[in-house]
């Protein structure tokens, strides 16, 4: 019979690495899915997930039994993904012709801001169009839509992971959906 998360966490606290490996194998695809949705890069997503698991193992003694393991794990993944995204957006552009080099790698010229993102990606595959639409969202909106639509979590669980109120989850979800509907209007 498969051990519960609790049983595995208890064994991890006693230093049992095999138990931790079971937890990793149980949740690796889910954490990578969240990181992929946040970062849109397979290598970054794998790295961030591995980093999150290592952080979990190192801090396992601090984990309190009243919380659920996966909400704690997902919170770490989301936070690390946001950090990774920030680091990347701070990296200066290699080609200075793309901008003035101070825009953090994002073309923030008025022309770019006013253009329709759909027009820029309409010739791409549907999967790419969706990923580019998700990339248009802020990290907070991305996190909420991924936890709901990909992981199928309840508002309560999402509020626990993102450490915000249930009302904030609802309004972020509403905004994110409206934005995606607008960006993907030709595919709906």
């Amino acid at each position: 019979m498969e051990s519960s998360d609790w049983e595995l966490v208890r064994r991890c606290k006693e230093g049992d690495r095999q138990a931790f490996r079971e937890l990793v194998e149980r949740y690796q695809r889910k954490t990578v899915a969240i990181a992929l949705g946040m970062l849109h890069d397979r290598e970054d997503a794998l790295e961030v997930s591995q980093e999150a698991f290592a952080k979990v193992f190192t801090n396992i003694q601090q984990f309190k039994e009243e919380a659920s393991f996966y909400t704690w794990l997902y919170r770490i993944v989301v936070n690390l993904a946001i950090d990774r995204q920030r680091q990347k957006s701070r990296q200066p552009l290699l080609d200075d012709d793309q901008g003035n080099g101070e825009s953090g790698g994002v073309d923030a010229t008025p022309a770019a801001m006013n253009s329709d993102p759909y027009e820029q990606v309409k010739d791409k595959e549907l999967g790419d169009r969706i990923r580019m639409a998700i990339a248009e969202l802020t990290p907070a909106h991305k996190a909420v839509i991924l936890l709901r639509e990909v992981e199928g979590l309840s508002y309560e669980e999402i509020s626990e992971i993102l450490q915000c109120s249930r009302g904030t989850v609802m309004s972020r979800l509403h905004y994110a959906r409206k934005r995606l509907q607008s960006l993907l209007r030709h595919d709906l």
Partner: peptide
């Protein structure tokens, strides 16, 4: 459906 599909393709 679209969001789940886009992520699962990459996964």
């Amino acid at each position: 459906e679209l969001v789940a599909q886009a992520v699962s393709e990459q996964l």
